[in-house]
Nucleic acid binder design. Structure first.
Lengths: 149, 149
DNA sequence: TCAATCCCAAGTGTTTTACTCGGGATTACA
DNA sequence: TGTAATCCCGAGTAAAACACTTGGGATTGA
């Protein structure tokens, strides 16, 4: 039940872009450095996100990536689905035909409820929400507003 | 974000046992046949569930497995955690120390909310609930109460 | 022109998955 | 007392997924 690094890295990268939305294209290597991700690996993830219409790229010198839409119009569910596939706990929910056991399988209702709960959380959060959270964290650490337990 | 077959098979197997709770030990091969799971593979899963105190085994002829507790006292979350590890979307929530980025990582709050949502669904459903669902399904198909779309 | 950037396909070592295989220990029952 | 039915255990394995790396090519601003 874990996300792979694709989802984690990819999301961190688009949050990074969201944080700089409106500032023109951001080169991939700066994102990779800030987020501590292998540049070439991140490139593959960005390629998927570009084909899916989450980001746009500008080639050549002074080029880079930027969000294709404002941060408040991109949900986390969208980003994760592109990189990890449908947000479901079992395959039989993802495919149309379902599984052969569907008429006798009591667990299917459970998996459906789980999928809905996951979709609810990820679909109701946008990149703008995470940017805001980021800024809150930064403000706190800047104000010395940290609790050392 | 998918369960492996361990979680799916293991859960199906304990639901099968829950369905026959109080009828004495059930040999593994009958469970494996009913649930269409490789017997040797299921054996490994049952071994984990036994060590974790979900099922008890009785060796020798006429032996088998049965639930260690009544179905209404075993949650799905328990079973899945034994077979798949902690129910969290990212590793840094599972370990105590967390990750090095925790103070600057906006996504951590999101993953926490996702983990809570998943735990809520799986922790509030018991084996008894799934047995009931099973019986409902059986009743319906028996009564010809099926919708062919 | 050339350096910065994106674009793309292929290769690679490691880990996980989903099993199989072979045998040993225990116990009810004839 | 034998023997068949069970559980118990460790090792082996083929295939897939993961997390990258490598090596180039195409575009474009200065």
């Amino acid at each position: 039940m874990r996300l792979s690094t694709k989802g984690q890295y990819g999301l961190r990268a688009v949050v990074d872009l969201a944080d700089r939305y409106g500032q023109g294209p951001i080169p991939l290597n700066t994102v990779a450095q800030r987020e501590e991700i292998s540049e070439h690996y991140l490139e593959q993830l960005m390629s998927q996100l570009r084909k899916a219409g989450i980001v746009v790229s500008i080639r050549g010198a002074q080029g880079g990536y930027q969000l294709a839409r404002p941060p408040e119009e991109i949900t986390i569910a969208e980003v994760i689905e592109i990189l990890e596939g449908p947000i479901v706990p079992v395959d039989c929910l993802a495919s149309d035909d379902g599984c052969s056991r569907s008429t006798i399988c009591a667990t299917q209702g459970l998996w459906k409820r789980l999928a809905d709960a996951m979709q609810e959380v990820l679909g109701s959060t946008t990149l703008a929400d995470l940017v805001e959270e980021n800024q809150r964290i930064r403000r706190q650490s800047q104000d010395g507003y940290m609790y050392y337990i």
